[in-house]
Design a protein around this nucleic acid. Structure first.
Lengths: 216, 216
DNA sequence: TTGCTGAGTTAACCGCGTTAGGTTATGACC
DNA sequence: GGTCATAACCTAACGCGGTTAACTCAGCAA
């Protein structure tokens, strides 16, 4: 690396900008990495392009430092996606505010789920359309993130109200989940396919399924 | 990897075994690569593990040779998956043999689609649950592979028979596709989730949806 | 026999995830 | 105020991955 004469302030050198954390504040870096990783993921739009090295750069840190807080890349990717997806359930619930009719709530729930998924496409892909995932990403965590329990509760309300005739809330809930996931998933993975307008599709599918559920 | 004393003929060296193709027979290698790649994919079970180098080894060839027939890795992966998936449509149709009732055919179609997807999980993932795909993998190709046109025809039959009340075959077909894809996709990506028994789930979902379709 | 070209190979580039082992600054303790 | 353990990093490297440039070599036409 020949050193050349140069204007002094030039590449001297974007010094990490980051100041080393004080004792006991090591966790600070974890957050900074997560923020940086989220930015890289959003900008690149692909899990692959979100490389450890790119994230390290964005965080003003060297690659090995990342391994102080994340076991491996999968772990980091999932941490980022989970972080953004803590909002999913909350967002869905927020869309139901003021609506009391269980069936109406169910429909709104589906629409909100799909909307959120499309708005966070790559994260949705990582969380729900991928095969390799870290050990700590358990089925419980997955269903919790998807707001599965709230869905089951809603289904039960519909059963009591008589708008769902089947008597197995689990099967009904999984079926509903599969339905909205199917739409979200297809749209996420093949955005260029000539799908019908999303709203039309969603309305039709949800209405059809609801109608089917209402009568055994 | 310590080398152990062994019978001489062991690693000497499985010489390529392959004889160079004659002039004009270059295409031969393409097939051999596809076969080898399919084997590697089946054995490793993951697109990632199916590396160019592993495929080249399995084909008795050096890595660069692969680029004579495939633009890049994505291209190869898709070629392998498409090859195996030429059977999808044919398989689904074969499951309908002897069944005339359109509604019954529709249900069988769904079951067959899901079954095939689960039997070729990683390929299904690549073809329908991935974001990066080669240019030549057009929407037309995708829908053709999924037997979409046959589905639309089937839906039309149901409309004429009066078992589907909606009048837009495209929307209905896409909805049905999303439904079966949703089930397949969830099962493929999260096989360890405590899903209800597949048959129960599929039967319930298809019956429910069919019932919904039958009445506007 | 020459020369062209198709069918491969060798060697290398660069980026990636990951690890072993070094460095530096902080702060508790004497 | 000096010592020193250790938390919080960094440097250097490994091995693997996709990919490419450039070479070799066999087959064939003239």
């Amino acid at each position: 690396m020949g050193r050349v004469a140069q204007a002094p302030a030039e590449d001297v050198i974007t010094p990490p900008a980051r100041t080393r954390a004080r004792r006991g504040e090591g966790e600070r870096l974890r957050d900074e990495i997560l923020v940086a990783a989220a930015r890289v993921l959003a900008e690149s739009g692909s899990e692959q392009a979100m490389s450890i090295r790119a994230v390290a750069d964005a965080a003003g840190v060297t690659p090995p430092s990342i391994y102080m807080h994340f076991a491996d890349k999968t772990d980091l990717v999932y941490a980022v996606c989970e972080r953004n997806f803590t909002e999913l359930d909350a967002y869905v619930e927020s869309q139901l505010a003021g609506v009391d009719d269980p069936s109406e709530r169910l429909a709104l729930r589906g629409r909100a789920y799909i909307g959120f998924g499309l708005d966070h496409a790559e994260q949705y892909r990582v969380l729900f359309m991928t095969t390799e995932f870290p050990e700590h990403y358990t089925p419980e965590k997955m269903s919790e993130m998807a707001g599965y329990q709230h869905l089951v509760d809603n289904v039960r309300e519909c059963m009591h109200a008589g708008t769902i005739a089947t008597d197995d809330p689990e099967v009904v809930s999984v079926g509903l989940w599969a339905l909205v996931h199917g739409i979200t998933s297809l749209l996420v993975s093949r955005p260029s396919f000539p799908w019908p307008p999303v709203d039309t599709l969603v309305d039709h599918v949800l209405a059809t399924y609801a109608s089917g559920l209402s009568r055994q």
